[in-house]
């Protein structure tokens, strides 16, 4: 057993112990969201932090997963366990196809194109009223069940969501430490050098784009089945920006950082009830501050800062 595995098990134990420490159902509900947001942030981080490709349209993939699952189960009576993988496959396939032309673009242009893609999806959720219920939303989505165990309480949902989230963390950690993760970081650092070594950078980027869409779609399905109600407002441009903020705050290319960013951004508004609605000011300020003062994110930036401070102290004594 290596250090990474011990770290992961410690993290998992800590998370799964939370329900024993907390009795409040409300906070439990918030933690369910932390789990969903963590999955989404990890999905985006694979693309942004590892492959170095930005997306401002991931809320769209999240929404597409939620709607596909919601429509298949609520309208057509499918079992959620069937709807979820089908939705993920459709979203992944779509992302794979869009990926080829869209990832030809770089930097600012890629940001704009993915943004446009996300908005087109958002408009589609709003306008295909016959399918999605339009702006007033889609209700009556069934909870997920295993046999006679229905995940219909916050506590049960907590365990459901977090088993997915922890599984996803483990898989992405493995991926990041594999030949694929290395190849991604290589493409990020120097695309031409990676190509010269035989890495098909374009295909790799498209694969990761599709993978991160699949992760977003699964998070969307889970969201739909725990909320039992979805509406387009949850899948707009603002949410894409919120995801981006989570990833940047936690740290590009850090899986645990994505958890930290997701947890912070999900919990913060809850603690700042009074400042509700104004959380976008905080997001904006945080995004700017992070890029300016801590571009490596909290997970790496805080230790960097401490080390610097300690050095200064040491310097003074010397």
């Amino acid at each position: 057993m290596n250090r990474d595995m011990i770290k992961f098990l410690g993290f998992a134990a800590l998370i799964l112990a939370v329900p024993f420490a907390l009795s409040g159902g409300y906070l439990m509900n918030v933690l369910v969201f932390v789990g969903i947001h963590t999955m989404l942030a990890i999905g985006l981080n694979l693309l942004l932090g590892y492959a170095g490709q930005i997306s401002l349209g991931h809320a769209g993939f999240f929404g597409l997963g939620a709607y596909l699952s919601g429509i298949l189960t609520a309208t057509y009576g499918w079992n959620p366990w069937l709807a979820m993988p089908l939705a993920a496959a459709v979203v992944g396939g779509l992302a794979f196809l869009i990926g080829f032309p869209i990832l030809k673009l770089k930097g600012h242009y890629l940001a704009m194109a993915t943004l446009g893609m996300g908005i087109i999806m958002y408009i589609t959720f709003n306008e295909t009223i016959g399918l999605t219920g339009g702006p007033s939303g889609l209700s009556g989505i069934p909870n997920i069940a295993i046999g006679s165990l229905t995940f219909d309480s916050d506590k049960k949902n907590f365990y459901l969501i977090w088993s997915f989230t922890l599984g996803m963390i483990l898989l992405t950690l493995n991926l990041a430490n594999s030949r694929i993760g290395r190849a991604l970081r290589a493409v990020h650092d120097s695309e031409v050098a990676a190509q010269v070594l035989g890495i098909n950078a374009r295909l790799l980027k498209v694969q990761i784009f599709a993978l991160s869409a699949v992760i977003s779609s699964i998070a969307g399905s889970l969201y739909a089945h725990t909320m039992t109600f979805i509406s387009p407002a949850s899948f707009g441009f603002n949410f894409s920006v919120e995801l981006l903020t989570m990833v940047v705050i936690g740290g590009l290319g850090s899986i645990y950082g994505s958890f930290l960013g997701a947890a912070l951004l999900t919990l913060l508004p809850e603690f700042l009830r009074a400042a509700q609605d104004y959380d976008i000011i905080i997001y904006g300020a945080m995004l700017m501050m992070m890029v300016m003062f801590m571009p490596r994110g909290l997970v790496r930036g805080v230790p960097d800062l401490l080390r610097k401070l300690l050095k200064k102290r040491g310097g003074k004594h010397a």
Partner: peptide, 28 residues
């Protein structure tokens, strides 16, 4: 053109990319 964010060993390991074949799923 080095991969500046990786260790020296990892840099060389990238060179062995074509000598290995595990896909996304197998790696995860």
């Amino acid at each position: 053109e080095l991969f500046g964010g990786m260790t020296v060993l990892e840099n060389v390991m990238v060179g062995l990319h074509t000598k290995s074949s595990s896909g996304l799923l197998a790696c995860s």
